[in-house]
Amino acid sequence: MNKYMIYLNSKRCIGCHGCEVHCKTNKKLPVGPILCEISHEPLKAVRGVPRTEFQFRSCYHCEDPYCVPVCPTGAMQKRQDGIVFVDQEKCIGCMACAGACPWGIPQYNSETGKAIKCDYCMDRVDAGLKPACVTKCATHALKFVTLQEI
């Protein structure tokens, strides 16, 4: 059972793409991989005001992820709390995970030669903090949510 998710309040999102850079700088990524992404539909006029909705996508942290079993070295793992992450020590950069993922979420870090993906900044989460994208969201539109069973 997944414990966490990142929720975007589209009403507060201003499409500043800050989250993407907050993530990249926290993970020290070079130009290339982008682990979370803000996107929006083309504008559509609603009662005289052209509007759009924003979407935030990082990794779905699937209940039953395709990327984990396909990993030949066991680098791709799912934690008890549901976070799917890459153990950088074990990863050999074969990118089988990216091929297995329906959305191509894992990306190649050309500087380390390994796969990289959103892990909700689990080192920060384990230290009682929130993921980088949420902590620094320019308008507090992103929320890190702990799911509860009802």
Binding site: C16, H17, G18, E20, V21, H22, K24, T25, T135, K136, C137, A138, T139, H140
Partner: peptide, 9 residues
């Protein structure tokens, strides 16, 4: 905590 893309860059 809020910062924009430029700030992190």
């Amino acid at each position: 905590g809020a910062l924009c893309a430029k700030g992190s860059a």
